[in-house]
Amino acid sequence: MNLLNYRAAIFDLDGTLVISEPAWQAAKSSVSARFGHSVSSAFLGSHEGRNVTAFVDEVFDKYDDERRAEVVSEIKSEAWRLLPSELRPIPGAQEFVRALSQQGLRLAICSSSPSRNIDLSLKVAGIEDLFDIRVSADGMKRGKPHPAPYLGTLENLALPADQVIVFEDSLAGARSAVDAGLTTVGIGPNLPSEQFGFCAIQVPDYETLLSSMDPGRRLR
């Protein structure tokens, strides 16, 4: 897969460029308990890559809109308290992102996180200067796995789908990207996996991507 065939790359954030999911899961769990709901680790895992509103809508389906909005706000506030001390960059992410930028690809973020979390995460990862387009949960009418987030990011790039490549770590995010018509690379320590079989490529880490670039230009 020749990177010169692409004019832009879109990255998910949480789990793809930074490790932040533990903070989000802790926030969801503690706030849910505060409101009298217990959530399992498996259920929290099933919501990786999805926005907080989707989680609250499912767990607090008996609440009215106003009270669900209150829960969403509390989860975001708790996550924001935890994130500054818990955020970690994914190994190799900075080097790979900079390699793409040096090849002339435009870079965009499509994340289920709020805007301020995106800004903080990119700063922690040392790549805040490279992403001029940042699509966040704040502006999403429908979240991942619906294709709307990636379709919106594609619209911001003003490029056809066949000129853009996506990097995603979650099933919800990868499905969103593929259903938007985008070539999608699944990346994560548990890949390759049959669950991600619909992705064009599966790799366990950025080291694999970097080592397969020929020379700094090609993904095989």
Score class of each variant (00 low, 15 high):
A54H: 02
K144L: 01
N51E: 01
W24E: 03
A26M: 05
L210M: 10
E66T: 09
E48K: 15
N117H: 04
L157K: 13
L4G: 14
D132M: 13
F167H: 11
S77P: 01
P160G: 03
L191D: 09
T184D: 15
L83N: 08
P204E: 05
K141Y: 00
P160Y: 05
G143V: 00
Y150H: 03
P189D: 10
E58L: 05
P204F: 03
G139C: 01
N5A: 15
S46D: 07
I19A: 11
S176V: 02
S112Q: 02
A125G: 12
E168G: 10
S20D: 03
N156I: 09
S113F: 00
F55D: 03
A108H: 08
N156P: 06
G15Q: 13
R175D: 13
I109S: 05
R7A: 14
V31I: 14
K62F: 05
L107T: 07
K123G: 04
G197K: 12
Q102R: 13
V97G: 10
G104R: 02
Q163N: 14
L219W: 14
C199H: 10
V203S: 09
M140P: 00
L182T: 10
N5Q: 15
L120T: 10
D214H: 14
P84C: 09
N190M: 13
A177I: 05
S41V: 09
G143C: 00
P215K: 14
L82M: 06
K28N: 04
